[in-house]
Design a binder for these strands. Sequence first.
DNA 1: CAAGCTTATTGTTTTTTTTACACCAAACCC
DNA 2: GGGTTTGGTGTAAAAAAAACAATAAGCTTG
Lengths: 240, 240
Amino acid sequence: MSEVESFFKSAFSVDNVIFGFDGGDLKVLLIQRGAAPYKGKWALPGDLVYPNEDLDTAAERVLEQLTGLRGVYLEQVKAFGAVDRHPLGRVITIAYFSLIKISDYTVTPASFAQSAKWHAVNKVVELAFDHNEILDSCLRRLRRKVRMTPIGFELLPPKFTLTELQHLYEAILIQPKDKKGKNGNKGIDKRNFRKKILSTNLLHDLNEVQEGVAHRPAKLYQFDRSKYEQLVAEGYSFDI
Amino acid sequence: MSEVESFFKSAFSVDNVIFGFDGGDLKVLLIQRGAAPYKGKWALPGDLVYPNEDLDTAAERVLEQLTGLRGVYLEQVKAFGAVDRHPLGRVITIAYFSLIKISDYTVTPASFAQSAKWHAVNKVVELAFDHNEILDSCLRRLRRKVRMTPIGFELLPPKFTLTELQHLYEAILIQPKDKKGKNGNKGIDKRNFRKKILSTNLLHDLNEVQEGVAHRPAKLYQFDRSKYEQLVAEGYSFDI
DNA sequence: CAAGCTTATTGTTTTTTTTACACCAAACCC
DNA sequence: GGGTTTGGTGTAAAAAAAACAATAAGCTTG
Protein backbone atom coordinates (compact mmCIF):
# COMPACT_ATOMS: atom_id res chain seq x y z
CA MET A 1 0.00 0.00 0.00
CA SER A 2 2.88 2.34 0.65
CA GLU A 3 3.66 3.23 -2.95
CA VAL A 4 0.00 3.97 -3.49
CA GLU A 5 -0.02 6.04 -0.36
CA SER A 6 2.89 8.19 -1.39
CA PHE A 7 1.28 8.90 -4.73
CA PHE A 8 -2.18 9.40 -3.34
CA LYS A 9 -1.54 11.85 -0.56
CA SER A 10 -4.59 13.97 -0.21
CA ALA A 11 -7.68 14.53 -2.27
CA PHE A 12 -11.32 15.39 -2.08
CA SER A 13 -14.32 13.66 -3.47
CA VAL A 14 -18.06 13.99 -3.61
CA ASP A 15 -20.53 11.29 -2.66
CA ASN A 16 -24.12 11.44 -3.68
CA VAL A 17 -27.09 9.97 -1.85
CA ILE A 18 -29.64 9.61 -4.63
CA PHE A 19 -33.12 9.15 -3.25
CA GLY A 20 -36.09 7.76 -5.09
CA PHE A 21 -39.62 6.71 -4.18
CA ASP A 22 -41.39 3.71 -5.64
CA GLY A 23 -44.83 4.30 -4.16
CA GLY A 24 -44.05 2.33 -1.05
CA ASP A 25 -40.54 2.79 0.23
CA LEU A 26 -37.97 5.52 0.14
CA LYS A 27 -35.03 4.15 -1.82
CA VAL A 28 -31.41 5.00 -2.31
CA LEU A 29 -29.36 4.20 -5.39
CA LEU A 30 -26.18 2.28 -4.52
CA ILE A 31 -23.41 0.86 -6.64
CA GLN A 32 -21.46 -2.29 -6.03
CA ARG A 33 -17.76 -1.60 -5.97
CA GLY A 34 -15.77 -3.36 -8.67
CA ALA A 35 -12.33 -2.61 -7.30
CA ALA A 36 -10.43 -2.38 -4.06
CA PRO A 37 -10.83 -1.05 -1.51
CA TYR A 38 -14.14 -2.52 -0.39
CA LYS A 39 -14.43 -4.52 -3.60
CA GLY A 40 -17.87 -6.08 -3.84
CA LYS A 41 -19.35 -3.84 -1.17
CA TRP A 42 -22.27 -1.55 -1.79
CA ALA A 43 -21.36 2.12 -1.75
CA LEU A 44 -22.65 5.55 -2.55
CA PRO A 45 -21.87 6.79 -6.03
CA GLY A 46 -19.06 9.30 -5.90
CA ASP A 47 -15.86 10.44 -7.50
CA LEU A 48 -12.83 12.59 -6.94
CA VAL A 49 -13.36 16.25 -7.71
CA TYR A 50 -11.49 17.42 -10.78
CA PRO A 51 -8.91 20.17 -10.29
CA ASN A 52 -10.96 22.76 -12.11
CA GLU A 53 -14.36 21.64 -11.06
CA ASP A 54 -16.67 23.17 -8.46
CA LEU A 55 -18.00 20.85 -5.82
CA ASP A 56 -21.58 21.21 -7.00
CA THR A 57 -20.49 20.50 -10.55
CA ALA A 58 -18.73 17.34 -9.48
CA ALA A 59 -21.84 16.15 -7.69
CA GLU A 60 -23.93 16.88 -10.77
CA ARG A 61 -21.45 14.99 -12.90
CA VAL A 62 -21.57 11.92 -10.68
CA LEU A 63 -25.33 12.01 -10.83
CA GLU A 64 -25.45 12.41 -14.57
CA GLN A 65 -22.89 9.70 -15.25
CA LEU A 66 -24.93 7.24 -13.24
CA THR A 67 -28.45 8.21 -14.19
CA GLY A 68 -28.24 10.33 -17.29
CA LEU A 69 -30.25 12.98 -15.49
CA ARG A 70 -29.53 16.69 -15.31
CA GLY A 71 -31.19 19.57 -13.55
CA VAL A 72 -32.59 17.55 -10.69
CA TYR A 73 -32.71 18.55 -7.05
CA LEU A 74 -29.26 18.46 -5.46
CA GLU A 75 -28.16 19.77 -2.09
CA GLN A 76 -24.88 19.69 -0.24
CA VAL A 77 -25.12 18.23 3.24
CA LYS A 78 -21.72 18.28 4.86
CA ALA A 79 -18.11 17.20 4.67
CA PHE A 80 -16.74 13.97 6.09
CA GLY A 81 -13.06 14.05 6.79
CA ALA A 82 -11.94 11.61 9.44
CA VAL A 83 -8.25 10.88 8.96
CA ASP A 84 -8.76 7.17 8.47
CA ARG A 85 -11.99 7.22 6.53
CA HIS A 86 -10.23 6.12 3.31
CA PRO A 87 -7.75 3.26 3.56
CA LEU A 88 -5.53 4.52 0.72
CA GLY A 89 -4.88 8.05 1.82
CA ARG A 90 -6.35 11.24 3.07
CA VAL A 91 -9.59 11.82 1.25
CA ILE A 92 -12.25 14.08 2.55
CA THR A 93 -15.59 13.80 0.89
CA ILE A 94 -18.42 16.22 0.46
CA ALA A 95 -21.81 14.58 0.81
CA TYR A 96 -24.74 15.54 -1.37
CA PHE A 97 -28.21 14.21 -1.70
CA SER A 98 -30.40 14.39 -4.73
CA LEU A 99 -34.02 13.60 -5.41
CA ILE A 100 -35.07 11.96 -8.63
CA LYS A 101 -38.25 10.50 -10.00
CA ILE A 102 -37.54 6.82 -9.84
CA SER A 103 -39.29 6.24 -13.17
CA ASP A 104 -36.82 8.59 -14.90
CA TYR A 105 -34.03 6.21 -13.96
CA THR A 106 -34.27 3.26 -16.29
CA VAL A 107 -31.18 1.08 -16.22
CA THR A 108 -27.55 1.78 -15.74
CA PRO A 109 -26.31 3.69 -18.78
CA ALA A 110 -23.53 2.04 -20.73
CA SER A 111 -20.92 4.37 -19.30
CA PHE A 112 -21.15 2.71 -15.91
CA ALA A 113 -20.05 -0.87 -15.73
CA GLN A 114 -20.82 -1.22 -12.06
CA SER A 115 -24.12 -2.66 -11.05
CA ALA A 116 -26.32 0.02 -9.56
CA LYS A 117 -29.44 -0.86 -7.65
CA TRP A 118 -32.16 0.74 -5.60
CA HIS A 119 -32.19 -0.23 -1.94
CA ALA A 120 -34.91 0.58 0.56
CA VAL A 121 -33.32 3.02 2.99
CA ASN A 122 -34.73 1.09 5.93
CA LYS A 123 -32.94 -2.06 4.83
CA VAL A 124 -29.57 -0.76 3.75
CA VAL A 125 -26.74 -3.16 4.45
CA GLU A 126 -23.22 -2.35 5.59
CA LEU A 127 -21.65 0.00 3.08
CA ALA A 128 -18.09 0.79 2.08
CA PHE A 129 -16.09 3.52 3.81
CA ASP A 130 -18.17 5.70 6.14
CA HIS A 131 -21.07 5.63 3.74
CA ASN A 132 -23.61 4.43 6.28
CA GLU A 133 -22.87 7.49 8.33
CA ILE A 134 -23.15 9.70 5.26
CA LEU A 135 -26.46 8.13 4.34
CA ASP A 136 -27.76 8.73 7.85
CA SER A 137 -26.82 12.38 7.72
CA CYS A 138 -28.47 12.85 4.36
CA LEU A 139 -31.59 11.06 5.50
CA ARG A 140 -31.88 13.27 8.56
CA ARG A 141 -31.42 16.31 6.37
CA LEU A 142 -34.09 15.11 3.98
CA ARG A 143 -36.51 14.47 6.84
CA ARG A 144 -36.10 17.99 8.07
CA LYS A 145 -36.08 19.64 4.68
CA VAL A 146 -39.13 17.87 3.29
CA ARG A 147 -41.28 19.50 5.94
CA MET A 148 -39.89 22.99 5.38
CA THR A 149 -39.77 23.16 1.60
CA PRO A 150 -41.83 21.49 -1.10
CA ILE A 151 -39.07 19.16 -2.32
CA GLY A 152 -41.14 16.03 -1.85
CA PHE A 153 -42.65 16.59 -5.28
CA GLU A 154 -39.22 15.99 -6.81
CA LEU A 155 -39.71 12.33 -5.99
CA LEU A 156 -43.14 12.00 -7.55
CA PRO A 157 -44.24 11.94 -11.16
CA PRO A 158 -45.67 15.24 -12.45
CA LYS A 159 -49.22 14.02 -11.88
CA PHE A 160 -49.97 12.35 -8.58
CA THR A 161 -52.79 11.60 -6.20
CA LEU A 162 -53.09 12.84 -2.66
CA THR A 163 -52.74 9.31 -1.38
CA GLU A 164 -49.47 8.90 -3.23
CA LEU A 165 -48.26 12.15 -1.76
CA GLN A 166 -49.22 11.06 1.72
CA HIS A 167 -47.47 7.74 1.28
CA LEU A 168 -44.35 9.64 0.23
CA TYR A 169 -44.39 11.73 3.39
CA GLU A 170 -44.96 8.66 5.49
CA ALA A 171 -42.09 6.81 3.82
CA ILE A 172 -39.74 9.69 4.52
CA LEU A 173 -40.87 10.78 7.96
CA ILE A 174 -41.94 7.65 9.75
CA GLN A 175 -38.98 5.70 10.95
CA PRO A 176 -39.30 2.15 12.15
CA LYS A 177 -38.60 2.69 15.82
CA ASP A 178 -39.72 -0.24 17.87
CA LYS A 179 -38.49 -3.44 16.28
CA LYS A 180 -41.87 -5.07 16.31
CA GLY A 181 -45.04 -5.01 18.29
CA LYS A 182 -47.22 -2.00 18.83
CA ASN A 183 -45.15 0.97 17.86
CA GLY A 184 -46.42 4.49 18.09
CA ASN A 185 -45.93 5.17 14.40
CA LYS A 186 -49.53 5.33 13.38
CA GLY A 187 -49.01 7.14 10.12
CA ILE A 188 -50.49 10.47 9.19
CA ASP A 189 -54.19 11.18 9.55
CA LYS A 190 -55.64 11.17 6.07
CA ARG A 191 -58.19 13.94 6.50
CA ASN A 192 -55.83 16.26 8.30
CA PHE A 193 -53.09 15.68 5.76
CA ARG A 194 -55.34 16.50 2.83
CA LYS A 195 -56.74 19.53 4.56
CA LYS A 196 -53.29 20.87 5.26
CA ILE A 197 -51.73 20.18 1.91
CA LEU A 198 -54.69 21.58 -0.02
CA SER A 199 -54.81 24.68 2.17
CA THR A 200 -51.43 25.72 0.79
CA ASN A 201 -53.13 26.18 -2.59
CA LEU A 202 -49.98 24.89 -4.22
CA LEU A 203 -51.62 21.85 -5.77
CA HIS A 204 -53.36 22.29 -9.06
CA ASP A 205 -56.39 20.07 -9.48
CA LEU A 206 -56.00 18.69 -13.00
CA ASN A 207 -59.62 17.48 -13.27
CA GLU A 208 -58.25 14.12 -14.27
CA VAL A 209 -58.45 10.82 -12.49
CA GLN A 210 -56.36 7.71 -12.26
CA GLU A 211 -56.93 5.04 -14.89
CA GLY A 212 -56.64 1.32 -14.70
CA VAL A 213 -57.13 0.93 -10.98
CA ALA A 214 -59.51 -1.66 -9.59
CA HIS A 215 -61.31 0.75 -7.29
CA ARG A 216 -62.57 4.28 -7.17
CA PRO A 217 -60.00 6.33 -9.11
CA ALA A 218 -58.35 9.23 -7.31
CA LYS A 219 -58.07 12.75 -8.65
CA LEU A 220 -54.73 13.82 -10.06
CA TYR A 221 -52.87 16.91 -8.93
CA GLN A 222 -49.81 18.81 -10.03
CA PHE A 223 -47.44 20.92 -7.96
CA ASP A 224 -47.68 24.58 -8.99
CA ARG A 225 -44.08 25.69 -8.84
CA SER A 226 -44.55 29.18 -10.24
CA LYS A 227 -47.21 29.89 -7.63
CA TYR A 228 -44.87 28.63 -4.94
CA GLU A 229 -42.07 30.90 -6.11
CA GLN A 230 -44.41 33.84 -6.18
CA LEU A 231 -45.61 33.14 -2.66
CA VAL A 232 -42.02 32.77 -1.42
CA ALA A 233 -41.21 36.18 -2.85
CA GLU A 234 -44.06 37.52 -0.72
CA GLY A 235 -42.63 35.93 2.41
CA TYR A 236 -44.47 32.62 2.40
CA SER A 237 -42.85 29.67 4.08
CA PHE A 238 -43.88 26.11 3.30
CA ASP A 239 -44.56 24.01 6.34
CA ILE A 240 -46.13 20.57 6.54
CA MET B 1 1.84 33.51 -8.90
CA SER B 2 2.71 30.53 -11.05
CA GLU B 3 5.50 29.12 -8.92
CA VAL B 4 3.28 29.40 -5.90
CA GLU B 5 0.50 27.75 -7.83
CA SER B 6 2.57 24.79 -8.85
CA PHE B 7 3.67 24.23 -5.27
CA PHE B 8 0.30 24.87 -3.76
CA LYS B 9 -1.90 22.64 -5.82
CA SER B 10 -4.77 21.55 -3.69
CA ALA B 11 -5.53 21.67 -0.02
CA PHE B 12 -8.31 21.92 2.48
CA SER B 13 -8.85 24.25 5.33
CA VAL B 14 -11.34 24.97 8.07
CA ASP B 15 -12.85 28.36 8.78
CA ASN B 16 -14.58 29.11 12.01
CA VAL B 17 -17.38 31.58 12.59
CA ILE B 18 -17.05 32.32 16.29
CA PHE B 19 -20.19 33.90 17.67
CA GLY B 20 -20.48 35.86 20.88
CA PHE B 21 -23.14 37.98 22.56
CA ASP B 22 -22.43 41.15 24.47
CA GLY B 23 -25.89 41.78 25.88
CA GLY B 24 -26.97 43.80 22.89
CA ASP B 25 -25.66 42.51 19.59
CA LEU B 26 -24.70 39.16 18.19
CA LYS B 27 -21.00 39.39 17.39
CA VAL B 28 -18.50 37.49 15.32
CA LEU B 29 -14.79 37.29 16.00
CA LEU B 30 -12.74 38.31 12.96
CA ILE B 31 -9.03 38.62 12.37
CA GLN B 32 -7.26 41.12 10.22
CA ARG B 33 -5.06 39.42 7.69
CA GLY B 34 -1.37 40.20 8.04
CA ALA B 35 -0.24 38.68 4.77
CA ALA B 36 -1.30 38.32 1.16
CA PRO B 37 -3.71 37.47 -0.22
CA TYR B 38 -6.24 39.94 1.10
CA LYS B 39 -3.65 41.54 3.36
CA GLY B 40 -5.31 43.98 5.74
CA LYS B 41 -8.78 42.60 5.11
CA TRP B 42 -10.92 41.15 7.85
CA ALA B 43 -11.41 37.42 7.63
CA LEU B 44 -12.70 34.42 9.50
CA PRO B 45 -10.13 32.62 11.58
CA GLY B 46 -9.06 29.44 9.85
CA ASP B 47 -6.16 27.26 8.88
CA LEU B 48 -5.15 24.43 6.64
CA VAL B 49 -6.01 21.01 7.99
CA TYR B 50 -2.98 19.01 9.03
CA PRO B 51 -2.38 15.74 7.21
CA ASN B 52 -3.20 13.63 10.23
CA GLU B 53 -5.89 15.78 11.70
CA ASP B 54 -9.63 15.27 11.65
CA LEU B 55 -11.70 18.17 10.40
CA ASP B 56 -13.36 18.71 13.77
CA THR B 57 -9.99 18.65 15.46
CA ALA B 58 -8.65 21.29 13.10
CA ALA B 59 -11.62 23.51 13.86
CA GLU B 60 -11.08 23.04 17.58
CA ARG B 61 -7.43 23.89 17.15
CA VAL B 62 -8.16 27.10 15.30
CA LEU B 63 -10.58 28.07 18.02
CA GLU B 64 -8.19 27.28 20.81
CA GLN B 65 -5.25 29.04 19.20
CA LEU B 66 -7.28 32.18 18.89
CA THR B 67 -9.26 32.17 22.11
CA GLY B 68 -7.56 29.72 24.43
CA LEU B 69 -10.91 27.98 24.85
CA ARG B 70 -11.63 24.26 24.66
CA GLY B 71 -14.77 22.21 24.91
CA VAL B 72 -17.10 24.87 23.60
CA TYR B 73 -19.98 24.41 21.22
CA LEU B 74 -18.77 23.69 17.69
CA GLU B 75 -20.72 22.54 14.67
CA GLN B 76 -19.81 21.90 11.08
CA VAL B 77 -21.96 23.77 8.59
CA LYS B 78 -20.83 22.94 5.07
CA ALA B 79 -18.00 22.93 2.60
CA PHE B 80 -17.16 25.78 0.25
CA GLY B 81 -15.22 24.73 -2.80
CA ALA B 82 -15.63 27.06 -5.74
CA VAL B 83 -12.65 26.63 -8.04
CA ASP B 84 -11.59 30.26 -7.78
CA ARG B 85 -12.38 30.90 -4.14
CA HIS B 86 -8.70 31.05 -3.21
CA PRO B 87 -6.40 33.13 -5.45
CA LEU B 88 -3.34 30.96 -4.82
CA GLY B 89 -4.67 27.54 -5.62
CA ARG B 90 -7.42 25.07 -5.14
CA VAL B 91 -8.45 25.21 -1.52
CA ILE B 92 -11.77 23.97 -0.33
CA THR B 93 -12.75 24.99 3.13
CA ILE B 94 -15.03 23.43 5.68
CA ALA B 95 -17.03 26.02 7.59
CA TYR B 96 -17.74 25.66 11.28
CA PHE B 97 -19.44 27.89 13.76
CA SER B 98 -18.86 27.98 17.47
CA LEU B 99 -20.56 29.68 20.36
CA ILE B 100 -18.56 31.14 23.20
CA LYS B 101 -19.29 33.27 26.21
CA ILE B 102 -17.89 36.58 25.17
CA SER B 103 -16.57 37.23 28.68
CA ASP B 104 -14.42 34.10 28.46
CA TYR B 105 -12.53 35.67 25.59
CA THR B 106 -10.25 38.28 27.07
CA VAL B 107 -7.64 39.50 24.62
CA THR B 108 -5.76 37.84 21.85
CA PRO B 109 -3.36 35.34 23.40
CA ALA B 110 0.28 35.88 22.67
CA SER B 111 0.36 33.07 20.14
CA PHE B 112 -1.65 35.10 17.68
CA ALA B 113 -0.02 38.21 16.36
CA GLN B 114 -2.96 39.21 14.24
CA SER B 115 -5.43 41.64 15.62
CA ALA B 116 -8.68 39.90 16.39
CA LYS B 117 -11.81 41.85 17.09
CA TRP B 118 -15.50 41.35 17.69
CA HIS B 119 -17.78 42.72 14.98
CA ALA B 120 -21.54 43.03 15.19
CA VAL B 121 -22.89 40.53 12.66
CA ASN B 122 -25.29 43.13 11.30
CA LYS B 123 -22.44 45.47 10.48
CA VAL B 124 -19.84 43.15 9.06
CA VAL B 125 -17.76 44.71 6.31
CA GLU B 126 -16.46 43.08 3.15
CA LEU B 127 -14.36 40.10 4.14
CA ALA B 128 -11.53 38.21 2.48
CA PHE B 129 -12.18 35.25 0.18
CA ASP B 130 -15.79 34.06 0.23
CA HIS B 131 -16.03 34.66 3.93
CA ASN B 132 -19.14 36.84 3.74
CA GLU B 133 -20.93 33.94 2.13
CA ILE B 134 -19.62 31.57 4.78
CA LEU B 135 -20.73 33.90 7.53
CA ASP B 136 -24.20 34.12 6.01
CA SER B 137 -24.51 30.36 5.88
CA CYS B 138 -23.41 29.98 9.47
CA LEU B 139 -25.77 32.70 10.61
CA ARG B 140 -28.70 31.05 8.89
CA ARG B 141 -27.74 27.77 10.49
CA LEU B 142 -27.52 29.39 13.91
CA ARG B 143 -30.93 31.03 13.46
CA ARG B 144 -32.52 27.71 12.73
CA LYS B 145 -30.63 25.74 15.32
CA VAL B 146 -31.18 28.12 18.21
CA ARG B 147 -34.91 27.51 18.01
CA MET B 148 -34.59 23.74 17.84
CA THR B 149 -31.95 23.08 20.46
CA PRO B 150 -30.97 24.93 23.62
CA ILE B 151 -27.66 26.21 22.30
CA GLY B 152 -28.43 29.84 23.04
CA PHE B 153 -27.23 29.32 26.60
CA GLU B 154 -23.72 28.72 25.24
CA LEU B 155 -23.57 32.44 24.57
CA LEU B 156 -24.67 33.55 28.03
CA PRO B 157 -22.88 33.46 31.36
CA PRO B 158 -23.90 30.58 33.63
CA LYS B 159 -26.29 32.81 35.55
CA PHE B 160 -28.56 35.05 33.54
CA THR B 161 -31.86 36.86 33.71
CA LEU B 162 -34.86 36.20 31.53
CA THR B 163 -34.48 39.63 29.98
CA GLU B 164 -30.93 38.84 28.97
CA LEU B 165 -32.08 35.59 27.46
CA GLN B 166 -34.80 37.34 25.53
CA HIS B 167 -32.37 39.93 24.22
CA LEU B 168 -30.15 37.11 23.03
CA TYR B 169 -32.96 35.51 21.08
CA GLU B 170 -33.89 38.85 19.61
CA ALA B 171 -30.32 39.57 18.59
CA ILE B 172 -30.08 36.25 16.80
CA LEU B 173 -33.51 35.95 15.27
CA ILE B 174 -34.56 39.44 14.33
CA GLN B 175 -32.88 40.58 11.19
CA PRO B 176 -32.90 44.20 10.14
CA LYS B 177 -35.11 43.92 7.09
CA ASP B 178 -36.37 47.28 6.00
CA LYS B 179 -33.51 49.71 5.89
CA LYS B 180 -35.27 52.29 7.98
CA GLY B 181 -38.77 53.40 8.79
CA LYS B 182 -41.46 51.23 10.26
CA ASN B 183 -40.31 47.70 9.93
CA GLY B 184 -42.35 44.76 11.08
CA ASN B 185 -39.68 43.49 13.45
CA LYS B 186 -41.37 44.29 16.71
CA GLY B 187 -39.31 42.03 18.91
CA ILE B 188 -40.61 39.20 21.01
CA ASP B 189 -43.52 39.67 23.43
CA LYS B 190 -42.08 39.64 26.92
CA ARG B 191 -44.87 37.79 28.66
CA ASN B 192 -45.21 35.15 25.99
CA PHE B 193 -41.48 34.58 25.84
CA ARG B 194 -41.19 34.08 29.59
CA LYS B 195 -44.20 31.80 29.66
CA LYS B 196 -42.79 29.64 26.91
CA ILE B 197 -39.25 29.41 28.16
CA LEU B 198 -40.29 28.69 31.73
CA SER B 199 -42.79 26.06 30.61
CA THR B 200 -39.89 23.93 29.38
CA ASN B 201 -38.83 23.56 33.03
CA LEU B 202 -35.23 23.66 31.87
CA LEU B 203 -34.38 26.84 33.75
CA HIS B 204 -33.38 26.48 37.35
CA ASP B 205 -34.44 29.41 39.50
CA LEU B 206 -31.36 30.17 41.57
CA ASN B 207 -33.20 32.30 44.14
CA GLU B 208 -30.64 34.99 43.53
CA VAL B 209 -31.05 38.41 42.04
CA GLN B 210 -28.91 40.80 40.07
CA GLU B 211 -26.72 43.14 42.07
CA GLY B 212 -25.56 46.64 41.34
CA VAL B 213 -28.33 47.62 38.97
CA ALA B 214 -30.11 50.94 39.35
CA HIS B 215 -33.58 49.46 39.21
CA ARG B 216 -35.51 46.46 40.39
CA PRO B 217 -33.08 43.54 40.19
CA ALA B 218 -34.06 40.56 38.09
CA LYS B 219 -34.00 36.95 39.23
CA LEU B 220 -31.12 34.79 38.06
CA TYR B 221 -31.58 31.48 36.31
CA GLN B 222 -29.35 28.67 35.20
CA PHE B 223 -29.82 26.23 32.33
CA ASP B 224 -30.33 22.71 33.65
CA ARG B 225 -28.36 20.63 31.20
CA SER B 226 -28.73 17.30 32.93
CA LYS B 227 -32.49 17.71 32.98
CA TYR B 228 -32.43 18.54 29.30
CA GLU B 229 -30.43 15.45 28.47
CA GLN B 230 -32.78 13.32 30.50
CA LEU B 231 -35.81 14.75 28.70
CA VAL B 232 -34.16 14.23 25.32
CA ALA B 233 -33.62 10.58 26.18
CA GLU B 234 -37.38 10.39 26.78
CA GLY B 235 -38.11 11.86 23.37
CA TYR B 236 -38.36 15.54 24.24
CA SER B 237 -37.57 18.08 21.58
CA PHE B 238 -36.70 21.67 22.45
CA ASP B 239 -38.65 24.25 20.49
CA ILE B 240 -38.84 27.97 21.04
C1' DC C 1 -76.76 -7.02 -12.47
C1' DA C 2 -76.52 -7.12 -7.62
C1' DA C 3 -73.60 -7.69 -3.83
C1' DG C 4 -69.18 -7.08 -2.23
C1' DC C 5 -64.58 -5.25 -2.26
C1' DT C 6 -61.35 -1.55 -2.28
C1' DT C 7 -59.81 2.97 -2.06
C1' DA C 8 -61.37 8.13 -2.32
C1' DT C 9 -63.46 11.87 -0.43
C1' DT C 10 -65.39 14.93 2.91
C1' DG C 11 -66.59 18.10 8.00
C1' DT C 12 -67.13 18.80 12.80
C1' DT C 13 -65.67 18.95 17.48
C1' DT C 14 -62.16 19.17 20.89
C1' DT C 15 -57.81 20.29 22.35
C1' DT C 16 -53.67 22.68 22.15
C1' DT C 17 -50.89 26.43 20.89
C1' DT C 18 -50.19 31.08 19.79
C1' DT C 19 -51.06 35.80 19.98
C1' DA C 20 -52.46 40.14 21.83
C1' DC C 21 -52.52 43.12 25.46
C1' DA C 22 -51.65 46.58 30.46
C1' DC C 23 -50.79 47.25 35.11
C1' DC C 24 -48.44 46.90 39.58
C1' DA C 25 -43.79 45.84 42.01
C1' DA C 26 -39.16 46.58 43.48
C1' DA C 27 -35.02 48.81 43.75
C1' DC C 28 -32.25 52.97 43.08
C1' DC C 29 -31.66 58.03 42.43
C1' DC C 30 -32.28 62.50 43.68
C1' DG D 1 -40.78 60.61 49.34
C1' DG D 2 -41.55 61.23 44.56
C1' DG D 3 -39.60 60.00 40.15
C1' DT D 4 -37.40 56.82 37.14
C1' DT D 5 -36.37 52.43 35.40
C1' DT D 6 -36.75 47.71 34.58
C1' DG D 7 -39.01 43.27 36.47
C1' DG D 8 -42.78 40.50 36.79
C1' DT D 9 -47.41 38.71 35.99
C1' DG D 10 -52.73 36.64 33.75
C1' DT D 11 -56.51 36.35 30.72
C1' DA D 12 -59.14 36.27 26.63
C1' DA D 13 -59.38 35.66 21.66
C1' DA D 14 -57.69 33.47 17.62
C1' DA D 15 -55.42 30.08 15.19
C1' DA D 16 -53.63 25.63 14.54
C1' DA D 17 -53.55 20.83 15.35
C1' DA D 18 -55.58 16.56 16.51
C1' DA D 19 -59.17 13.23 16.92
C1' DC D 20 -62.61 10.96 14.72
C1' DA D 21 -66.42 7.87 10.86
C1' DA D 22 -69.64 7.71 7.28
C1' DT D 23 -70.64 7.88 2.31
C1' DA D 24 -69.06 7.68 -2.70
C1' DA D 25 -67.14 5.73 -6.83
C1' DG D 26 -65.41 2.40 -9.56
C1' DC D 27 -64.16 -2.47 -10.27
C1' DT D 28 -64.71 -7.56 -9.47
C1' DT D 29 -67.17 -11.55 -8.80
C1' DG D 30 -71.01 -14.81 -8.63
